[in-house]
């Protein structure tokens, strides 16, 4: 307990850093995931295969490989940038495919008649997606979406290892390796930090879930 109290500011900084990574990654992954899902269910074959290819690549590629590409591949071909953005964008690109699949499962759960009715009153594909399909799909994809978001949060620890550092997990390294503190209390603090992030989000999402539960 002393370890956590004594190094509270370091834990707090690390926590904030992790929150930053997660926030920006989510900010990218959500809209991108929605676009990908839209592409995957669109009537345009080119968009469908584009979305499918994207998801296949990023779902079969380990996150570390994606991040390695971002942190070391891009500078190699002359693209310079901060590791924070390399890592965060890498995480966003990777997580978007999971957001997409969560949404797509939701879209598939919306009865086909809803789309037919939307088209029948003259709504375009994008409009029927926006106004009819997605609002219903979002509700049924909340549970898999919650998982995707929680995975994103946990994966932020991997982003930390690609030059970003100073995130919650890296705090453990600093305290144990550089400052020689015992691993157990340090890791307890780190776990508490992640719980502090994951639990409220899980709670909020399950609240939303019950709020918007759809009548059929």
């Amino acid at each position: 307990m002393d370890v956590i109290v004594d190094n509270f500011d370091l834990f707090a900084q690390g926590w904030l850093r992790t929150v930053q990574i997660c926030f920006y990654a989510l900010l990218g992954a959500l809209p991108l995931g929605i676009l990908l899902a839209a592409a995957r269910v669109s009537p345009v074959p080119f968009l469908r295969s584009l979305g499918g290819t994207w998801v296949t690549i990023f779902m079969s590629c380990p996150l570390t490989v994606v991040l390695f590409f971002m942190a070391f591949g891009l500078p190699e071909i002359g693209i310079k940038g901060s590791y924070f953005w390399f890592g965060t964008i890498g995480l966003a690109l990777y997580s978007a495919s999971f957001v997409c699949e969560a949404l797509r499962s939701g879209i598939n759960a919306v009865p086909a008649g809803q789309a037919e009715a939307a088209r029948s009153i003259g709504l375009s594909f994008m409009r029927s997606l926006n106004l009819v399909i997605l609002p219903q799909a979002l509700r049924s994809s909340l549970p898999p979406m919650t998982n995707a978001i929680i995975y994103l949060i946990k994966n932020s620890a991997i982003v930390g290892a690609f030059g970003v550092g100073q995130d919650l997990f890296a705090v453990a390294d600093t305290l144990t390796a550089a400052r020689g503190l015992s691993a157990l209390p340090v890791l307890t603090g780190v776990i508490a930090g992640y719980l502090l992030l994951v639990l409220p989000i899980g709670r909020i999402l399950s609240l939303i879930e019950t709020k918007v539960a759809i009548l059929r």
């Binding site: 037919e116 009819v132 009548l215």
Partner: peptide
């Protein structure tokens, strides 16, 4: 439609 297909939300 046979199954009404009202927008459920």
């Amino acid at each position: 439609f046979q199954s009404f297909n009202l927008f459920a939300h």
